[in-house]
């Protein structure tokens, strides 16, 4: 019984820890802008200063923010797609084939996962402006791919090692063509892994800030995190806290949706690196 109570308390603590700041930003997003700039309603909840959906409406009316959402979605999806395709090829080779240089590939991936992103900012900016990739979608997609590949390769390799590849041969023996065997047997087994890698990759791209602020300069390619940090409210001298909170909530909705639907897969993917495949 004592243990049970301890556990319930533990669960409650975990939930408070994880959700309190989220609740805070949500509460802030419903406070009126005037109350926030005067500091007249300093409590946690928007009691005297409830502003309804007006902050959300204002944020949504901001064209730069809508562009940023579009940029983030587009850039993140494209880099996720490309990264996962390339990583699938590599992970298949690492998990199933013997070839020279396998260790080297894994070491490169490990090195890149540890790479200090900021040290690339200056040379990449210089390079991008020379070849015309500065402030464009591809200019962000390329670095996102490089930095998500290690994670994607690890996750996929771990998943692929668990696939009983003999089943493919067994299916072929049973008369299936090799394409059929691949499609009917291997694809369903590999799909969850690929999917998990895609989600983790998407999270990385969605979260990136350093490349976002250094390799863009307008809404042509500026992603959400950078747009948030430059967000300008009606009062040019103060960070519009409640507007920013509303913008932050909007930027978090896709994450929450993905988490709600795919929580199991994400946990499996995150832990696959630590658990031996």
């Amino acid at each position: 019984m004592k243990r049970k109570i301890g556990l319930v308390v533990g669960v409650a603590l975990v939930l408070v820890w994880c959700l309190l700041p989220v609740a805070w930003i949500l509460a802030l997003s419903f406070k009126s802008q005037a109350a926030v700039s005067n500091g007249s309603d300093p409590g946690f909840l928007p009691l005297d200063s409830f502003a309804g959906w007006s902050n959300y409406a204002d944020v949504w009316a901001d064209e730069q923010f809508r562009r940023a959402i579009l940029n983030s979605i587009g850039i993140s999806l494209i880099s996720t797609l490309l990264s996962v395709i390339i990583a699938t090829l590599a992970a298949y080779a690492i998990a199933r084939l013997e070839f020279r240089g396998k260790k080297a590939v894994l070491s490169v991936a490990l090195a890149i996962a540890m790479f200090p992103v900021v040290s690339l900012v200056s040379p990449l900016f210089d390079l991008w402006r020379t070849i015309g990739l500065y402030d464009t979608w591809p200019g962000l997609i390329l670095p996102y791919m490089s930095f998500t590949l290690p994670l994607a390769i690890w996750t996929l390799t771990a998943f692929f090692r668990e696939i009983p590849w003999e089943m493919e041969q067994a299916a072929q023996v049973d008369g299936a063509t090799s394409w059929q065997a691949f499609r009917k047997v291997i694809v369903p087994l590999a799909a969850p892994g690929v999917f998990t890698a895609a989600i983790l990759t998407f999270f990385f791209a969605w979260n990136d800030f350093v490349f976002g602020i250094t390799l863009t300069s307008t809404e042509a390619a500026r992603p959400i995190p950078a747009a948030l940090s430059f967000f300008v409210g009606p009062d040019p001298f103060q960070r519009p806290a409640s507007l920013l909170a509303a913008a932050a909530v909007i930027a978090t909705i896709p994450i929450v949706l993905i988490v709600l639907v795919f929580q199991r897969k994400i946990v499996a993917g995150l832990t696959s690196g630590a658990v031996k495949g």
Binding site: S37, N38, G39, D235, P236, F237, Q238
Partner: peptide, 11 residues
Amino acid sequence: NEGTALAAMYG
């Protein structure tokens, strides 16, 4: 900054 100082005028 220029904005934070404004509130104190009538507080």
